[in-house]
Design a protein around this nucleic acid. Sequence first.
RNA 1: GCGCCCGUAGCUCAGUGGACAGAGCAACGGCCUUCUAAGCCGUUGGCCGGAGGUUCGAAUCCUCCCGGGCGUACCA
Length: 551
Amino acid sequence: MLKTLVKRSFARAWRKLEDDERINKRIALVEVERSSRPEFGDFSSGIALAEAKNTTLSAHELATEFANALSTDITAELYSQVEIAGPGFVNVFLAPSLIHSALREILEMGDRFGYSTTGQEKPVQVEFVSSNPTGPLTVGHGRQAVLGDVLASLYTTLGYKVSREYYFNDEGHQIDLLAQSLWARYRQEFGDTTSIPEQGYQGEYIVDIARQLVEEPGPSLADFDEQTSNRFKQEAISRISSMIKNDLDLLGVKFDSWFSEQTLHHSGEVTAALEALKACGGIYEREGAIWLKTKENHGVKDSVLMRSDGRPTYLMVDIAYHINKHRRGFVHVINVQGADHQVEQSCMRAAMRILGYPEDFLDYAVHQFVSIKEHEKITRMSTRAGKFILLNDLLNELGRDVVRYFMVARKPTSHLEFDIDLARTQSLDNPLYYIQYAHTRIASIFRRVGSPALSPQVDLRPLEKREELDLIKQLDRFPEMLQQAAFEFSPHLVTDYALTLARAFHAYYDSYRVLGDQERLTTARLALLRGVQIVLHRSLQLLGLSIPEEM
RNA sequence: GCGCCCGUAGCUCAGUGGACAGAGCAACGGCCUUCUAAGCCGUUGGCCGGAGGUUCGAAUCCUCCCGGGCGUACCA
């Protein structure tokens, strides 16, 4: 990668300066940035500005010394030019031969370009969606599903062994309410006036399921006794979870494992978790309940683990779940969650600290909510009140690619306003097509010339236009961008990047002909296009979008 | 009240310490006998919510204020 080479060169040059008596002999970390504008070269450093105060030199004088030290790398064919600009920036312009070597590297790597061994095959888990099986997925879950899926792909690319997991809350109060709600709808089908519990589920889908139950088991179940309750629980869970799985399938999200909350209760892991916390001195009793010492472990506030009636809270079970994750050998667990879980997140971190797990074991990729704008009205969603827009409806109307793109193109910490009308009328203007179109244009050229094999040893010297060198520099940035997108939980950087690359390609395509009479030039340009194709392909693949050969 | 997130062009959003603030959409004007015009080129449009502070340098960091969202359950 070019940046690595430049960094090394800058560090070498700075070390030479350290012998200068006017400069304190301190090791400075030489910051190297990609320049913001073409006039400022390819890379620049503001180190002279930052370090001048530690010397007897002015920023400009220090920059001059630094630039002189760098200039030996001009003869080494790293740079074509080294400049001092503004108050004391040092800017370097890369030599074309160096830029060509970056493309050569990409051609050598082929489809493996962007993959790295950073992760050393360490097992990482991404847990996401984990929606209660109490209703179909909404567009909000859709955002989380796409976010988690792309994050998982990014970590895979960086060399981690990634597992996607869905935690199924198939036990507890909400499930009881669900069963009661379904029961009420079922009785209503027979003309009874049974009403839905106050906090119960109002959605249409409950009515649909109730109608199915009219056929089988039929009207026989007239009392809501324990047996009937269990029957309705299982019916509701199994039917709703298959709805969920179907929606995720449509969205192109596949999980490696589905973890049932019930298993934690049945295996005794909840009790064991409580014992473990107790052994570490992390709990206390008050008002008949057992509490977690969250606050003295950097958390927000203490929370109840065991209610005074002896039943565990959701948090207690979730801690047991995380102990289970740890036991399964994951070194890093990333939970994708909505912004409404902040207290839980703080409690869970406290619990991990109490148990003595490494600080970096648990991480949360937090995302803000999705609101839906339709006919100038903004709707917020509530599953219980039956007020929501279904992911399924959105997928049927707009298709997987458009939905995925909308969901991932935004920074997770920003609220996502999903404008339905805009999505309908402008789905054809979606930037997604702009990216895919770039890929098809390249594919079309390769079809025309019969997809020749392009050796990395191909002569790249004919690539001397500014646009060509710029394209290569864009490609070279890909691996850096992937690292940032993964570690900062920011998959939107991938869409941003792909868009910028597509733009540079389209502009180039319109200005220059690839296929021509001069064989050397044509071959070199084909090599460049191969590079762009590889990176666009990888980007679309990471985002889970289709990769069309023609449109 | 307290905690977290957000406030950037008409709209939806990037940019979180660097040099004159970016994109898509919308608006306006050009470009198809040539590798796919789902494209390209150009124009219009912003005292980066406000006020202080730190810094050689602030949309970016700190403090306060204003506006919006989400929390603040012995719910999940």
